[in-house]
């Protein structure tokens, strides 16, 4: 090992790691600190999209006061919460069942894995369009099929009650990424444990409950927390489903006019944030309040994740 004795050499050696980090450190400044600090700053100002580059007016706490009175915030937060509470567990359970099935199918595992993973890679816009088509009330194939067996299918994306469940179906179609993580985790469960449990007379369910589940529980927790964080930014599918499913777009109204259709049922928090900033209202100051709140919620979940999974840092 070359010995560097001079002070300058040691200094240079201590600086070397930072040369690797320069782009990433700039990135942290530009994409984490700058947006956070300026969002806080904007949230005390009146700032309109059409006057974006002009200095904003200070209006104190007005934006924050309105945040607590705005019924649209409650609507949007409720929708997002619905997705967190329903979509996340459904996707995890769905992915786990699929992964268990895959692990049974020994020889054809690779084939099935490809098949189940593929939808997860489909562009979200494309997948959403496909689902709107698939679930079209009246003439869509799903309702046609249901009608053939005597069930009157719901209106799916056109019904305020069914629009969110329709999006869950879309989410279940794309469980491939979770499934792959679960398949890997299931393979790591020690075979000896299963054998020992089987010798003790444990049935299939008991072995799953007392052997498999505890072994993969960290992976499940990881999936749950990242799932929640994913739902906090749920945008594309909700936006595209509502704009494609809605029949009425007054020419020139802009695509954001259709977001939330039907009856605001798919209007998630990030969608509201987008519409209030980049729709005709252009209330950037107020939207910054929404950003700051979303930031706090997202960081809270991230910190929970980090506390639980210190291995990330090891």
């Amino acid at each position: 090992m070359p010995t560097i004795t001079g002070g300058a050499g040691r200094y240079r050696r201590r600086l070397t790691p930072y040369t690797f980090m320069i782009p990433a450190l700039i990135g942290l400044g530009l994409f984490l600190f700058y947006p956070l600090l300026s969002s806080i700053w904007f949230s005390f100002h009146r700032m309109h999209l059409v006057n974006l580059t002009q200095p904003p007016d200070f209006i104190g706490l007005d934006n924050w006061k309105f945040f607590f009175e705005d019924p649209n915030v409650i609507r949007a937060a409720k929708n997002t919460l619905w997705f967190v509470v329903i979509m996340v567990p459904m996707r995890i359970v769905g992915a786990l069942i699929t992964a268990l099935l895959l692990n049974q199918a020994k020889r054809s595992r690779g084939f099935y894995r490809t098949l189940f993973y593929l939808p997860a890679l489909a562009p979200p816009v494309a997948a959403t369009v496909a689902f709107v088509l698939l679930l079209k009330p009246g003439t869509g194939p799903v309702n046609t099929l249901l009608a053939n067996i005597g069930i009157e299918g719901p209106l799916w994306f056109n019904d305020p009650l069914w629009a969110k469940p329709s999006l869950v179906l879309l989410g279940l179609w794309g469980i491939g990424d979770l499934m792959i993580i679960f398949v890997a985790a299931l393979l790591d469960v020690p075979v000896e444990l299963h054998e020992a449990a089987a010798l003790d007379g444990a049935g299939v369910w008991q072995r799953f409950r007392y052997v498999t589940l505890p072994s993969i529980s960290p992976v499940l927790q990881f999936a749950a927390i990242t799932g929640v964080i994913g739902m906090l930014q749920y945008f594309t599918q909700a936006a595209v489903a509502s704009s494609v499913a809605s029949g009425a777009v007054t020419g020139g109204g802009g695509i954001a006019n259709t977001f939330g259709y039907p009856s605001g049922s798919t209007f998630t928090y990030p969608l509201y944030l987008y519409v209030i900033s980049f729709g005709p209202r252009g209330l950037l100051g107020y939207a910054s309040v929404l950003s700051v709140v979303l930031f706090v919620v997202a960081v809270t979940f991230t910190l929970i994740l980090l506390r639980r999974f210190r291995t990330f840092l090891r």
Binding site: H48, L49, G253, G254, I255
Partner: peptide, 9 residues
């Protein structure tokens, strides 16, 4: 309108 607003801003 949304695009025009955005672009002017």
């Amino acid at each position: 309108d949304a695009k025009t607003t955005q672009a002017i801003g």
